[in-house]
Amino acid sequence: MPDKTTQDRAAGALMGAFIGDALGLGPHWYYDLEAMHRDYGEWIDGYTDPMPGRYHDGMKAGQLSQSGFILKLTAGSLVDRGGYDQADFCRRMDEELFPLLNGEPANGPGGYTSQSIREAWRRRVEQGLPWGETAGHADTTEAIERTLAIAVRYALDPAGLADAVARNAALTQGDDVVLSMTVAYCSVLALLVRGNALDPTISDKLMELVKKGVLPFHAVTREGLKPPRPGDPDPPRAGRFASPDALLSPGYMAGAAVDPAIRIEPAWKVSQVYGMPCAIYHMLPAAYYLAARFRDDFESAVLHSLNGGGQNMARTGLTGALVGAQVGLSGIPQRFIDGLEDGDALCALALRLAEQAATPPQR
């Protein structure tokens, strides 16, 4: 496969996330796979309408969920401001999203509002608290689903990425472990936009950035995870996050994907290996595995994620971003763009962000 330009990979990452989000809109949150098969058949291969009485009822095939709406809002802020401007992002949330919510789950753009966004709305709108006092304790990927746009923009500036992603994620997520896993995913995505493969060496590259003080993770061990020696400082590399383990996970999942002695067949059963629920520690291993296994095959990656059921909308959006960053926008089958509502406009947004991403931001 020919090399992809940074811009192509950056645009592919953002479009992969939009596509994955929209694919999951219809068959979202089926934990009974037999029920999903009765409603959608044995294999879902594209965009579908949500069933009456289920999540996102009233939406149509190819539309974005509320997570996609917020991702678009985030990307728009980045493009218009030339980088991450937290005040502008918060203003857009106040003006463009929160007036459309009422604090109930089955409400708002996309037909459903996630836990962390409901909690932020209550603190911000009902209680009148300032941004910065709006975070809740949801252990989900909701922050990643928007900050991946920041990762694309700051792909060539990993220190700036870590700072901007952590600050944005902390607006809605109060758990430091969730924040560390969010920064880790975004750091992986940035490496892929820069042309690295999601293979077993990805974690070594991330740990090298920790060693250089670029990524803000605490690490007690020496290179190669060797133990500290007598006289070594404690810690040799300090950072905001207590452990670098979130940076090690991608390498293990990528290793499992290429190890001939480890097979998950069919690949959609990855959801049953790592778990179908919404928590971040279920979502990320499955997304890393699928994106490593199908690194050159966008369609197989997102469809196996989708057909795994459970929280397949988040899983497929995160998988789509990781694989989109590897195959580039040019490697995404056109049918997924054609079937996406406002697909041309979303492509234009992705290309504008990608153009900015090709140049390191000034800080």
Score class of each variant (00 low, 15 high):
74 T>K: 00
339 G>P: 10
151 A>Q: 09
82 G>E: 12
235 P>W: 06
154 Y>G: 13
10 A>Q: 02
48 T>L: 15
347 C>E: 14
340 L>W: 02
230 P>I: 07
191 L>A: 13
253 M>K: 06
296 D>H: 14
97 L>C: 07
91 R>I: 06
27 P>N: 08
148 L>S: 07
343 G>T: 00
228 P>W: 02
73 L>T: 02
342 D>T: 02
4 K>I: 10
137 H>I: 07
343 G>K: 01
28 H>Q: 07
350 A>Y: 08
101 L>Q: 08
311 Q>F: 07
92 R>N: 10
288 Y>E: 00
106 A>D: 12
166 A>W: 08
35 A>G: 04
266 P>T: 05
187 S>Y: 08
3 D>S: 14
237 R>W: 13
230 P>E: 09
101 L>A: 12
277 P>K: 14
113 T>E: 05
136 G>Q: 09
360 P>A: 11
3 D>M: 11
328 G>K: 01
199 D>N: 15
262 I>Y: 15
46 G>W: 02
304 H>K: 05
235 P>G: 10
189 L>P: 03
174 G>Q: 14
123 R>F: 14
166 A>H: 10
183 V>R: 05
16 G>S: 01
271 S>E: 04
164 A>S: 15
342 D>W: 01
128 G>W: 10
145 E>A: 10
44 I>P: 04
293 R>L: 15
263 R>T: 15
36 M>T: 04
34 E>A: 12
19 I>E: 00
53 G>Q: 12
234 D>M: 08
278 C>Q: 13
345 A>Y: 00
116 S>D: 15
227 P>M: 05
144 I>E: 04
225 L>F: 12
332 I>Q: 03
163 D>P: 00
340 L>F: 08
50 P>I: 12
252 Y>L: 08
8 D>Q: 11
209 L>E: 06
310 G>F: 01
303 L>H: 04
250 P>T: 13
298 F>M: 05
105 P>K: 14
189 L>T: 12
93 M>W: 02
64 L>R: 01
299 E>I: 03
41 G>A: 11
291 A>T: 08
108 G>Y: 04
313 M>S: 13
181 M>G: 10
312 N>A: 14
25 L>W: 05
12 G>C: 02
171 L>C: 10
144 I>Y: 02
282 H>K: 13
7 Q>F: 03
23 L>I: 13
211 K>F: 12
296 D>G: 10
332 I>K: 00
140 T>D: 13
259 D>G: 01
78 L>P: 01
116 S>F: 00
240 R>W: 05
77 S>C: 15
40 Y>G: 06
266 P>Q: 04
82 G>P: 03
195 G>D: 11
331 G>L: 00
276 M>G: 07
282 H>P: 08
185 Y>W: 13
358 A>L: 11
184 A>C: 03
293 R>M: 11
77 S>M: 14
13 A>H: 01
333 P>V: 03
272 Q>C: 02
358 A>T: 13
113 T>G: 12
70 I>N: 00
26 G>N: 03
303 L>Y: 06
295 R>A: 12
130 P>F: 14
193 V>C: 15
298 F>K: 11
268 W>R: 14
320 G>P: 02
295 R>E: 09
15 M>E: 06
220 V>F: 15
202 I>C: 07
234 D>R: 09
315 R>L: 15
250 P>N: 11
